[in-house]
Design a protein around this nucleic acid. Structure first.
Lengths: 367, 367
DNA sequence: CTGAAAGCGCTTACAG
DNA sequence: CTGAAAGCGCTTACAG
């Protein structure tokens, strides 16, 4: 029996093979390899050196079955086109790695098949997923779950611990910042209808109603089929966002539609700034406004939330209110792992909000 | 014994539980559930209805251990910031789903720990990963592996089946297209030094040497520390791209540096067009050129490869030579699954090359 | 300090 | 058509 039998053969080496080679039982091999329990020092050396020589690798599936834990967690998120989620993911990876966990990503899986993939816990991407999970699926699973939250914590999901970025507060800060820069008529563009309870749009409505009065909704771009009705642009999105499970459109595309609507309405009123739902939507909006001949920020200022790495790769760079998404990702991973390992956790961790200045907002206060 | 014992308890239901409930043995339960072998019809009904009532879900880890196959494949790729890879991934997901496989993504794992995650096969993201895998790790693993390839198939990796996008041909097409549009002095910007054997830069050198002669390398932007030496801009990248395992910088950032160099050199010569290594690099370059006051395509035209979905969310939209990355992803998944299932496969599948016109190239031939 | 045994949840060849 | 048994690769409590 030599290396070839395993490496070149079609069978992987097991602890049984090592045991035979070392003249001991599998129990001893396991103890030596796991560094648990007593093993006579000479035998330990021998076992370790054999394992090394043959390039032995433990079978992760067998260990998982036996220990009922895989040291793998799942990032449940459908939309990796959104750079925010990519950043979130990179944040998780490193934090998890430090604690010995692997973060898997899978965009295809649904809640009802989530047990096809064996993980120790799940990180959900937003409040609506959390609400659905808490309401339907989670009841039968009893798997540790945490969620990223954006100021919309829904009552159903309060049982799910969250790392929260308070978008209500963030949107208020954005408005305050724009005002400081001399902007008074501030528009808002998002992917949901005005009736949606999204924290960003509620903050905007509360704050702008006194200023805009009856004309408030001229300044509101809710790029959603229920809002735009038969609008030609929206036709293609008819069935979108009915469920957080399908991403048929992108925020980019919605940003473009918002830009076109903005250009149309510009004839009758004058917003000097637009707050966008997120970076991705802002990028689409910016590109389309520029195509229409608008200069940013000279003709109109743009702000958004998220603070993705892509902020810097557009011209002009976006001014954002945000948290570093990588930090949020890291906190999420740590929160989940704490829960898995049954440490004490707090149910809602609030992230600090920062302003990241770019070149997309014009200071009118000097003029 | 009722539902509560499992769903509300801390133990998941197993086939043994179903067997007890149905008054049969586990063997019968397995046969009924897997629809294999004989089961008396009445018992089958009973078993299925019990499984349904209690919401029984098979334990994927136990099945994997027993069958030595997980129906999961891994997309090995470090860089999800690059939208090309995101598109590739989405292409894989759907193709794999149709054949009953799940595509996992993990950005943290390295070759030497790849067996920590139990998959039936691996899709590598490019030729250099394939070469390294074939040279070092693959020897001991005997796991089905395929790779995306970009015209650089390295000799070490010929044993790994590939879905190839011929970048040499693609770059020739880009040059031909630009010439048709009246461009003569065409620059090239990429992340590797001039000595690199990357198909794009070789094609460009072969084609432009006769035109640019001694001054060729004034038109070549190899954003790599070995090329730029002590250049201040490159300091931060000193250790980058030494290995395909670490992504310390992004193509965006390199595109910006290329843009700054381009602006410097513009005083002494006049390129009317630039071919960029990929979309991500082109975006960075475009943003920085615009910041420097250049109009695209009026002052300089831009082309690149990849054809990512983000093409459309920048202004102007990029003109690309490419394949639909989602199609390449789908082909990769199918190739790998064919290999896993021991179907006949061809070792190199060549993808057709298309031109995707955007607004980033100016037609000088009319002037 | 050691090894036989039971077990994690499943599958399947085999004897009845 | 059925069920006891062996096995996938590992762990660990227990008797020696």
């Amino acid at each position: 029996m030599n290396e070839k039998d395993f490496e070149g053969g079609n069978r992987k080496m097991t602890r049984k093979d090592i045991a035979k080679l070392a003249g001991v039982s599998v129990s001893v091999v396991s103890r030596a390899l796991n560094n648990s329990g007593y093993v006579e020092s000479g035998k330990r050396q021998k076992i370790l050196s054999i394992a090394k020589e043959y390039g032995y690798v433990p079978h992760p599936v067998a260990m998982t079955l036996q220990q009922a834990r895989s040291r793998q967690i799942l990032f449940f998120c459908k939309d990796m086109q959104n750079p925010f989620n990519v950043d979130l993911y990179y944040g998780m990876i490193n934090a998890a790695q430090e604690r010995g966990y692997l973060v898997l990503y899978n965009a295809a899986i649904n809640f009802d098949r989530i047990r096809d993939i064996y993980v120790d816990g799940i990180i959900l991407q937003n409040d609506s997923l959390a609400a659905i999970y808490a309401g339907q699926y989670g009841k039968n699973y009893f798997l540790p779950v945490v969620t990223a939250s954006f100021g919309n914590r829904e009552s159903m999901a309060v049982s799910i611990p969250a790392v929260d970025f308070d978008m209500y507060k963030a949107c208020m800060s954005a408005i305050a910042y724009l005002r400081k820069c001399g902007h008074k008529y501030i528009a808002y563009a998002g992917p949901y209808p005005r009736t949606d309870s999204n924290a960003r749009s509620i903050a905007w409505q509360n704050e702008m109603r006194p200023v805009l009065g009856d004309r408030m909704y001229d300044y509101f771009y809710g790029i959603h089929y229920s809002e735009l009705g038969q609008s030609k642009e929206l036709k293609e999105f008819r069935s979108d966002y009915m469920s957080p499970f399908t991403v048929k459109e992108t925020f980019y595309a919605k940003g473009k539609i918002a830009a076109r609507l903005f250009m149309k309405r510009q004839t009758s009123f004058k917003a000097t700034a637009i707050i966008c739902f997120n970076d991705e939507m802002a990028f689409g909006m910016m590109a389309e406004l520029q195509r229409c001949g608008m200069k940013i920020p000279d003709d109109v200022s743009l702000m958004s939330f998220d603070c993705t790495h892509q902020r810097e790769s557009h011209y002009p760079t976006l001014t954002d209110i945000g948290v570093d998404p990588r930090y949020q990702g890291a906190r999420l991973a740590n929160l989940l792992i704490d829960k898995i390992e049954q440490k004490k956790i707090s149910y809602t961790e609030k992230l600090p909000i920062h302003l990241f200045e770019g070149d997309s907002v014009k200071d009118l206060s000097q003029t």
